[in-house]
Design a protein around this nucleic acid. Structure first.
Lengths: 337, 337
DNA sequence: CTAGAAAGGTAAAACGTTTTATGCAATGCT
DNA sequence: AGCATTGCATAAAACGTTTTACCTTTCTAG
């Protein structure tokens, strides 16, 4: 498997009649070459279609032109190809799109804490980590190596860390809760996941705060992300047994779809008796009957913001961070009264 | 930006009291070291948490543990983050999943033919290219560099090339067409994309063959992939003006959704007067009213097959290829009579 | 007792860059 | 005239591996 390598700097140097140092300097705007030589070398290099080898370049501590993406949340889901889970699928696409538009390649990297670590993992210029946990070991590894990173969703328990971007959870959660209140809901139950990430933790905070403000008793349920729709169906029984709330706010679309199905299977009419709403849109939410109102997250803006920050970090510039993006609320039949 | 490198082979050698050659040999099962030394070195390396630097290793023409993914079809769509286009979104996820499960990282690489080429692009171990075109320049570049690759969908016009995997188009297209015939359709129109990939070309062949067998006059329409739903709406007018067929088979879900909407806007009743079916499922197909029957492609099995083949190629073993996977037909309201 | 092989190990070259240190003219200044 | 400065270019070191070639010992056979 000895690979046909491309044109090397040596080839260019020979053809241009200069040293390899001259070539390197000409192409990287370093050194003290005369404008004429520089130009000449560039022309020759172009003609020959020279492209510096990334590996050799990387070895000398330059930049690789590639960043890593760790989908922390997928580890939680236990499935790297979950059908219909909008955020992750779309986030990969959006992040790739943003990266490619900036001339960066995007590498999907599995859990960095499990051996064997993917070979290139620690050679990348930087990382995007989605939905980090409390004390996330992936982040610990990156810091240990001094690799710049940004997170999609703030890392919980790290008030000092600012290099993150996310939808404005406070804003959007209140949008949802107030929407429910306006529609006449007095008691609202929250169904969150068990993954200890900012998404789950912050929504819980906001929810509890909102309940307190309104003097209503919080009803909080935790359901593992990977339980999916079936888990939601099962949870519906419990919710029902403990007394039907006016509305159920599920943070994931799958849970929402399951809860609604479970409730309806027991004869509950949605939205007449109880409303259901999802904190992140997904195909399950859209395709349920009645269709479930949901927050549509904003992976495009978020990933753009993340790449802005990450590029600043890599360049050693101060970063404009954190950055908040706006989710859109999609009211649907499940909350229409 | 001088990065904190990890433990190097030199550190291990010093600690183990041997030469760096010894370390390299011990860890790679080369050379003529005694079993004892080998074991000792391994122990020391493990203790220190040594991981060979991928760049340095790659420089010596070894393997990188990473493969590239070129989403040819997205170039055609002109958008790297098309919402609701199942195959591509899900294929990325599925391919990533498969790659990660085999300890390979997956790198999303933009069009290799446009400068600047992403730095690491030509250093990867191999490539998956989705839906290559006739005379695809991306493939030309890979061959020029001697980089192994496999394709999702066979490369058109290359009967000799076998390193591909795909759903069985012949099988599934006939499934669709016969389903329509059974439901009473005599005249069926085909709407294909303009991208010259196997998907479009083969379906056209199969369709024409099927028409000929049944003695029905083919009605073939071409619509650019990027025209999307709107393009389908517009095309509906033309189809209608040329006489309503009993069924319209659109190769993409977006086109199907558009065509159906356009027909219905002009008063055509679906499925009563005309049935609509999509050759690849997508959210648009599922969410149209009536819901559009569609083929659900199989990115999971396909990407698994592709990785099998690619790994064989990289290892220099003969590959079991090509490999066909099965799509599932999802009958929905748009063809229910 | 010695030539040759086998066993066990290492030094050094190579991979393709970037970076640092150095060299050599030509020019400017007293 | 002599010395510092400037302008331009290059040699060589370094990055962290793998691989090739070579060097000791020790063993075996004659």
């Amino acid at each position: 498997m000895t690979r046909a390598r491309g044109i090397t700097i040596k080839d260019v140097a020979r053809r241009a009649g200069v040293s390899i140092t001259a070539v390197s300097h000409a192409l990287n705007d370093k050194g003290t070459l005369s404008a004429a030589t520089r130009e000449h070398i560039r022309t020759v290099a172009d003609e020959m279609g020279y492209e510096a080898d990334a590996l050799a370049r990387g070895l000398r501590r330059s930049t690789m032109g590639a960043i890593g993406l760790v989908l922390r949340s997928l580890d939680a889901l236990g499935d790297y190809a979950p059908a219909g889970v909008d955020v992750f699928e779309r986030f990969v696409g959006a992040a790739a799109s943003q990266a490619l538009a900036r001339g960066l390649s995007l590498m999907l990297v599995p859990d960095l804490t499990r051996a064997p670590v993917p070979p290139l993992a620690f050679s990348l210029d930087g990382y995007i980590v989605t939905n980090p946990h409390v004390d996330d070991p992936v982040i610990a590894r990156l810091e240990e190596r001094g690799i710049p990173y940004v997170t999609y969703g703030r890392p919980p328990g790290r008030p000092d860390f600012t290099h993150w971007a996310s939808e404005d959870d406070e804003d959007s959660a209140r949008l949802v809760l107030n929407h429910l209140a306006t529609a006449g809901a007095r008691s609202v139950a929250l169904v969150r996941g068990t993954d200890p990430n900012a998404w789950n933790l912050e929504h819980q905070e906001i929810y509890l705060g909102w309940c307190e403000e309104r003097g209503s008793t919080p009803r909080l349920y935790e359901l593992p992300e990977r339980a999916g729709v079936e888990g939601g169906v099962a949870l519906a029984d419990r919710i029902l047994d403990e007394g039907l709330p006016d509305a159920v706010f599920c943070l994931t679309g799958r849970h929402a779809a399951g809860v609604q199905r479970g409730l309806m299977a027991r004869g509950v009419r949605v939205p007449a008796q109880t409303m259901v709403v999802a904190g992140s849109d997904s195909e399950h939410a859209r395709n349920s009957r009645p269709a479930i109102s949901a927050l549509e997250l904003n992976p495009v803006d978020s990933s753009a913001a993340l790449l802005d920050i990450l590029q600043s970090l890599i360049a050693g510039r101060p970063a404009d961070a954190p950055r908040l993006t706006r989710a859109r609320f999609r009211p649907r039949a499940s909350t229409r009264r």
